[in-house]
């Protein structure tokens, strides 16, 4: 099939970017979206142009590297699917696709579709861990975890840290990401001792990184390739309130 692409091209962080049109001819519907971009890039290179830079690695929906907004939807039109797992059979001959980087103030564009998501790492550094030294852990089965808690924690922990939630949010809030990360640890007994501190510092790090406020529209959950539930946001709000109150009361 033949498609028309309008792709965001931006040489570097400081350069001006713009949408550039490309003809994508003879695209095989069996290709993945990134394979389609590979093919376009091979053609660009052969023609002496710069290929389109995009992040990717595992190409099986788990590393969270791939990131592109297609016709306004982060990761494109197929629900619960990263752009590396999206296949061209979901488009049709003649379609026009606008392909842009994940947009957010806290995710500056590095080049073309590549953005800087290191703000996510800084949020984890602020408290997204359990403080346990290597070699000091107790025998694993001495701390049983109810199955439903383990399952709930696992639901949250499936987050791949891609940033689609941020790109989908009109305020560019990172609430779903933070809620998933905090929710995973706060649910487990291992994470309980540091719960209050974790919630307060992760939220502070989120604010500091320049993410916006959550206004409970849940566009984030809708585009999340792992279908992380907005219920984790409610859990985070509760945990945050509790932690703040405790902090006030205890000074």
């Amino acid at each position: 099939m033949d498609l028309k692409l309008r792709v965001w091209r931006q040489k570097n962080r400081d350069a001006e970017g713009r949408l550039v049109e490309y003809d994508a001819k003879d695209i095989d519907p069996e290709m993945s979206f990134l394979e389609m971009l590979d093919v376009i890039n091979e053609r660009l290179v052969a023609a002496g142009d710069d290929p389109i830079a995009f992040d990717h690695d595992c190409r099986e929906g788990i590393c969270g590297a791939c990131s592109a907004t297609i016709n306004g939807i982060p990761h494109g039109p197929q629900r619960a699917t990263t752009v590396c797992q999206l296949h061209m059979r979901h488009f049709k001959d003649g379609d026009v696709l606008t392909i842009e980087p994940f947009r957010a103030k806290a995710f500056p564009v590095v080049r073309d579709l590549v953005v800087d998501r290191s703000a996510f790492d800084r949020i984890i550094e602020a408290g997204g861990f359990v403080s346990v030294r290597t070699g000091s852990a107790p025998e694993a089965n001495t701390l049983p975890v109810p199955k439903q808690d383990a399952d709930w924690a696992m639901d949250a922990a499936s987050c791949i840290g891609c940033g689609a939630c941020v790109a989908a949010c009109k305020n560019a809030s990172a609430m779903l990401f933070v809620a998933a990360k905090a929710g995973h640890l706060n649910t487990l007994p291992q994470g309980k001792p540091e719960k209050d501190r974790r919630v307060l510092s992760m939220v502070a790090a989120m604010d500091e990184a320049g993410f916006g406020n959550c206004t409970n529209q849940y566009e984030c959950s809708a585009v999340c390739p792992k279908s992380i539930s907005e219920d984790f946001i409610a859990q985070l709000n509760r945990d945050y309130l509790k932690a703040s109150l405790k902090k006030c009361l205890m000074g």
Binding site: F129, V130, V132, T134, G135, S136, A137, P138, A140, L143, P144, V145, P146, K147, A150, D151, A153, M154, A157, H184, L185, L188, Q190, G191
Partner: peptide, 11 residues
């Protein structure tokens, strides 16, 4: 070690 870190192993 992993369980103590909060790795959500199947239970």
């Amino acid at each position: 070690q992993c369980a103590a870190q909060g790795v959500p192993f199947a239970r």
